[in-house]
Structure formats: C-alpha cells, structure tokens
Design a protein around this nucleic acid. Sequence first.
DNA 1: CTATATACATAAGAAAATTATGTATATTTG
DNA 2: CAAATATACATAATTTTCTTATGTATATAG
Lengths: 112, 112
Amino acid sequence: MKDSKLLKGTLQTIILKLLSDKDKMYGYEITQQVKQLTAGEFILTEGALYPALHKLEADGYLQTDSVIVDGRARKYYSLTEFGQKEQVSKVQDALTFVEKLQLILNSKPSLS
Amino acid sequence: MKDSKLLKGTLQTIILKLLSDKDKMYGYEITQQVKQLTAGEFILTEGALYPALHKLEADGYLQTDSVIVDGRARKYYSLTEFGQKEQVSKVQDALTFVEKLQLILNSKPSLS
DNA sequence: CTATATACATAAGAAAATTATGTATATTTG
DNA sequence: CAAATATACATAATTTTCTTATGTATATAG
C-alpha cells in the first residue's frame, strides 16, 4: 500500500464509528487513533478529514464543542441522535461491502 | 446497502482479479460475474465499468480482442504481462486495506 | 532558537463514481 | 407479431471525494 491511499468513501463511516466508541473526539485525535488502530497503515490527511467532519456536521450527524486546551483551540465532535442511528447502518453496510469484496478478491479461478 | 454504492476505488482491482482468474472476459460478462459472486449486492453500472476498462487498457494493464458473437459486438479483455504483475500487488493492497478497515469497524469501545 | 508536534482550515485540481443518454441486435413473452 | 427485456458497447455532464498545497497559530523538545 503506497502511502495509505484508497480510503475511498469509507472515511465518513470510520469517523462515525470512532465517535460511536468514544463519545467525543477532536480532529487531530481522530488522525492519531486511526494511525494507531491500523499500525500506521491509514494516514488521514487534514485535507480529507476536516472537510469530511464539516460535511458530517452540516448533514446533522455530528455536533461540535469548541474549547481551548493548553492554549490551543480544539474542536470536539460528537454524534447527534441521528448520527448515532445512521452510524449503525453505515458501519453494517461497510462491513457487508468488505465481506463481498473479500469474496471476489479471494475467489478461486473458475475451473471452466 | 442501498443499491450497491461504495465501490470506491476498488473497481480496477476487481476487474484485474476477475481477469486473473478467467483469462479473458468481456464487459457485460464482468457485470454478471460480479453480480453473481456478491449475490446481487454489487451492481456494476456501465458508466463506471466501461471507462474503467478503457483506462486499464490505456495504462497497459489490459489488451483487447473484438469479435462478433451471435450478431452482436463483443470486446474481450485480457491481462497483459504487466497487468498480471500489477494485479498481484493491487489485490494484496486491497486485502490489506479491508483488513485494516475491519479492525476499525469492529473495534470495541476503548474503556477509558 | 529552530524543528517538530499539536490543531484547525481552505482552495485548486484530479480521480472515480453516478446518472442520463444513445446505438444496436437477440430473445422472450403476451 | 409487437413489445418488453436482455445482451453489448459507449460517452457526456455532474457530483463526490480525495490529494496536494498552502495558511495560521501555539507548545514543546532538542
């Protein structure tokens, strides 16, 4: 995997899932958590992350809480009730997707 | 999964993998094979498939062989030597990707 | 004091999909 | 037999989503 490409449409779902596990997180924290969970394989760039967060907020999935910590601005995101509901089906959809993808990518040559 | 979205960047890899298994296939056949392998979950639309095939050919992964069968045009695609090599690493990358994605999507809430 | 880490944000461009069309022939069904 | 569906390819406009580059700002480590 050359430098962590191919996040491809799953970024929103990843964000929702992490927030479902952790109650509230801020952007930088999300990048670090993803890096840690994937042993450095997924690198979330800011150019992808922040627009995704803004869109999720605009669409009503997330709400924010801005605070100052150690002299630096920090913007906490958390799931709305709607976001919590959608998270469940989006994660399920993504898991179904990867299972089907594995089916294809692991399929043996047809002996025709 | 509402109508099979989120193919997202894996389409090229799926095509290469199928052609690695079956020697040669034509576009319509690929759509049917994917539908069958995923129990109808992935629907390849022509607007996605044909441009992808053209790009793979332009990039040297595929070569074509046009024939007429039962009075209808049919364009067979097969892997070039280069395409065969690349297929291996692209499939491996995609499998690594989905494993990491599953790690995230199946992770338990941190008990912090 | 300088580099790195933390922390957010946006803008230009590219890549890849969706949706909508278009052409054409073969087969199935009412 | 007419109409609908299946087979078979293709492209164009638009949208979504990501990459790359840039910008601002403070804290900490060397």
